[in-house]
Structure formats: C-alpha cells, structure tokens
Design a protein around this nucleic acid. Structure first.
Lengths: 209, 209
DNA sequence: AAGGAAATACAGGAAAACCAGTATTTTCGC
DNA sequence: GCGAAAATACTGGTTTTCCTGTATTTCCTT
C-alpha cells in the first residue's frame, strides 16, 4: 500500500512518520506539509493508494484538497485526520470524497487499523463521528411537524409543487377549481403561509411532501 | 451486555444462538422470532443493551420494529442483520434508529466484533453498506446542475422561495418591480419552467438554492 | 476599444392566484 | 344515528403574476 501524508504541524507529522514508517505492507511515499505539493506530485504522475490528510492546512484546506485529489485520482482513498468534529466540517469532508474520518486523539492502533479498513473497502470513522453522520443522515429525511395536513391536501400540495396550475389540478382530479382553491386556503392556514410558493417551499424544506 | 435476538428463520436463529450463547460478557436473554413478543417484553419492563434484528419478518417488519423499540427504550442499541442491501432499506433502517447494519454473509467474527463496537458507541456497518451510506449522504447535498443562474438570480430566487412577493422583493433590493419580473423571466427560462412555484420547487429539490 | 453578458427598467394586456364568506355532501368514529 | 372533520362547490371582487416586446446602463473580458 502506497501511503501519502499531508500534515502541516511538523511535530505531529514526525510522530505519524515514526508510527507509519516501516509498518508491514505500508510504503510511506510522501509526508507533505500542504495540499499543493501533493497535487503537484499527482500531476507528475504519481499514484497513492491511501492519503492521510489533515483539514486545517495553510493554503488549500484539507476538504478542498480532497476534492481536487479525487478529481485527479479517483482511486485514491482519502482519510481525514483532524481535530474538527463539527457537523459542517464532517459533512464537507464526506462531500469532498473522503472515505474515512478520524479524530487526532485516536490511539495509534486505530490509525493503523483504519488504513487496513479503508483499503478493504471500509469506512473508518471514529465512533462519535460515525454517530454524528447517522444523526445528520436521519435529519435529512425526517419530517419534524406534519401540520395536520390531510391526505387530499398533501396530494394537492404535491401537484402544486410540480408546477401544475390550479386549473389543471382541478382537471386532473376531476374537481372544481373552487374546490382546489378551498383546499389550498386550508393548506396555507395549516402551514401558516399566505401563498402557494411559500407553502411548497415550506413543505419541501420540511419534507412533508 | 444483555442481548436480544429477533430472527424468524429457525435455522439461522439457532446458528446465532450457538454463536452468541456463552460468549464472554454477552448474556443472550431472548431469541424472538418476531418483533411483537420483543415489544411485549419491553412493555413488561425488560431492558436489553443490544438487539440484533432481521428485517424481513412476519408481521411488523424489522425497520418498523426498530422504530417502536427505540420509542419504548431509547438506550437499546439496534443492529440490523439482513440480506437486504438496497438503498431504500438501508435508508429506512437508519431513519428508524438502527446503529448498525450487517449483511448476513458477514463472518461470525464480524458479528461478535459488531456487538462490542456498538456498545462502545461505534457504528458497525458492513463495508459496502457503509460506502453506500456515504454515497447517499453525498447525494443529498450535491447539486447536479446549476443551470447557469447568476448570483443575482439566485438571490432573487431565494427570496421568492421564502414566500416573499415580487413587489416586496423589489422593495427589499431597492429595485423596480419590472426588474424583478425580468429576472424571474430569465430564471424560468434557465430552469425550463413556466411559473414561480415550479422554479422554487425545482431549485429546492435540486439544491441549487 | 469593442463585444457580450448581466443588471436594470418600462408598457399593456391576459391569466392566474388570493381573499372573505357561505353552503352542501361525504365519511368516519363513537 | 349523531356530530365532527373532511371534501366538495360557489360568488364576487382584488391583487399578483405571467407574457411579449423593448431599451438602457454597467461591468467584464478579450
């Protein structure tokens, strides 16, 4: 396994080099102190299997760096190694293409096992970070309120959200336009909004349709 | 660790009982063949630390069962053990509150380590499933197209999505109503829609605002 | 300096949506 | 079978949005 390291803190970098250099099956090819030289090495044609990268780096940040690395070399497995455990940073790292996320307080053994894990197709996440990801994931799907909309109301709201005009909704459902208007009035009242756009927007954002 | 098992297939259930019974620190208290008796046991006051549950069960399905178990006993850690690896089922299981997700072809050792892992706050996922979760997670955030909207257009679209009327948008931005109308016309053209609701709906669904 | 995209602005008319109030029928749980 | 909630329907009037077409200014890039 060809491994690269990106870490600006000289002390921590050396610590990692000491830990990783000489481990069986691991060839620590580079220990960069920023993303830029790593990107240059990729452009020069070098190909790593796994990259262990910090996030708070001078110049290009680790998450943005991961995105660019993935663009140049999609097969490289990137594991972030950082002190940041806030939702936004974790979210960004995953979106940038990271396959793992460890906190710097992880024991040395965890870092070694993570390298193994990521190469075998796994996703090495520090336990509390993994929990957070699941929570975030859940949050993207779960409606908080449902505002007591009836099935008919949801059906009409859904059609409205597809950009269909009231008149055409009436035709599709074999109802009078007046009925649609009444339903929409009730929907607006339940959602505490005053027009169709706000209703659709609220419904989509809160995932009630 | 008090462990419960929910698995309808008698053969596989026995296999798990054989595997788990007698393991150090694990007390296999129940091996149910459906969710209903497990829920009854919870209501009778029993409290498990970890529940290992199948998904395709007669009666209440495993995902729905997990949701109800979590409602009755939030501290119980639920690990799904199933053959289903489709996106929808995985998604549902996580939303139902599962903290782990193993495929039935996992080696016996993985099941044992998963029990440990989940109790220490981890998230035992079979490698390919974990990969899928990350992909799904990414998908919830990444805009596919941006339709070439300018910053000003996005700004106006965002205000529109907040349910603000064109006249008020004009006032807020110190612009003429005519200008807002022109911008909206351009936005509609770029998004290939014909009214404000469809524009907001498309923008929200595709996460371009 | 020229060309083009972006942002701004206007006019007139048609269509759609919104508002307030009322009313009948259907459905469903107790 | 009764009452409440839900679904359906109508009137008349106001406001907003949409459509088509045109035009000027500003800013950026080449």
């Amino acid at each position: 396994m060809t491994l690269w390291l990106i870490e600006d803190d000289a002390f921590f970098r050396q610590m990692l080099v000491d830990l990783l250099d000489g481990v069986d099956n691991v060839h620590l090819a580079h220990a960069f102190e920023a993303c830029e030289p790593a990107l240059a090495a990729l452009q020069a044609g070098e190909i790593p299997d796994v990259i262990l990268s910090d996030i708070s780096l001078p110049g290009i940040k680790g998450t943005e760096g991961a995105r660019r690395i993935k663009a140049l070399c999609p097969t490289a497995q990137i594991v972030m190694l950082t002190i940041h455990d806030d939702d936004d940073t974790i979210f960004e790292a995953i979106c940038a293409g990271a396959s793992g996320y460890l906190l710097k307080n992880a024991p040395a053994g965890r870092i070694l096992s993570a390298l193994d894990e990521v190469q075998r197709g796994g996703v090495p996440f520090t336990a509390p970070v993994a929990r957070k990801v699941l929570e975030l994931f859940k949050g993207t799907a779960t409606p908080v309120h449902d505002y007591g909309l009836t099935d008919r109301e949801k059906e009409i709201l859904l059609l409205l959200a597809d950009g269909i005009k009231q008149k055409q909704i009436a035709e599709q459902l074999f109802l009078s336009l007046y009925t649609i208007e009444t339903h929409l009035r009730n929907i607006y009242a339940k959602l505490h909004v005053r027009n169709g756009i706000a209703a659709v927007s609220k419904a989509l954002r809160e995932r009630i349709i």
